[in-house]
């Protein structure tokens, strides 16, 4: 199937995007931020587990698959790799859903950021809203299904900027280690964040 045809067939659909956000809000109404957080994490983990596992002999082979969108980690999103360990999403794959929501429904419900606060304080700091919880949990679960040279892949969130401009970087005490693994400086990170949506690190132990 040609890329253009694939693009045409899989183009985002506002009905599903908006319905899914409202479905999540409905869950939050009944189960609160904690319940929604569990649901989002389960949603993302379930998706990653439903995809085939991957094995690569070398890091270069893995990077090729990642860059060509043949890996689970890049199946749903466009990525660039400023270094061999740093991955960047120029556009958040959830941005279009948010835009459809704000266009057709109104301002984004507060629960989406409240659940991120819950996630940041109880699971891992780095989420701006509910979409980041899905995305970051998916990446961790997907990485568990990828082995490079026999070693399990690891991912670490570095920073994200949402469509409305809100920015979230990991806690300052984690940053030096993460940036070292990414092979970028803090200045590099800030430069990347000017025109991109999400920055994360990939590595093996």
């Amino acid at each position: 199937m040609s890329e253009a045809k694939k693009e045409e067939l899989t183009e985002s659909n506002p009905f599903v995007d908006v319905a899914t956000h409202l479905f999540l809000e409905d869950i939050a109404d009944k189960q609160g931020a904690a319940g929604l957080n569990n649901y989002l994490m389960s949603l993302a983990t379930s998706l990653a587990r439903s995809m085939p596992a991957e094995e690569y002999e070398t890091w270069e082979e893995f990077l090729d698959a990642l860059r060509n969108r043949q890996s689970i980690l890049s199946a749903f999103e466009t990525i660039t790799t400023p270094t061999d360990n740093c991955v960047v999403n120029p556009v958040c794959p959830f941005a279009r859903g948010w835009m459809e929501y704000t266009k057709r429904i109104g301002s984004f419900s507060k629960i989406h950021s409240e659940v991120a606060e819950y996630y940041n304080s109880t699971v891992k700091a780095g989420a701006i809203n509910s979409m980041c919880i899905i995305h970051q949990t998916f990446r961790r679960a997907a990485a568990e299904r990828i082995h490079v040279a026999g070693k399990p892949l690891r991912v670490a969130q570095t920073a994200a900027i949402w469509s409305d401009g809100e920015k979230k970087t990991v806690p300052a005490e984690w940053q030096p280690i993460i940036l070292e693994r990414a092979g970028i400086s803090e200045t590099d990170l800030n430069m990347i964040l000017r025109n991109n949506a999400c920055v994360w690190v990939i590595y093996t132990e």
Binding site: N13, D17, T20, A44, S46, L47, I134, H135
Partner: peptide
């Protein structure tokens, strides 16, 4: 991605 995740949850739900 969000919608594909939701599809994977239909069975679970």
């Amino acid at each position: 991605m969000l919608d594909v995740a939701l599809v994977s949850l239909i069975q679970d739900m």
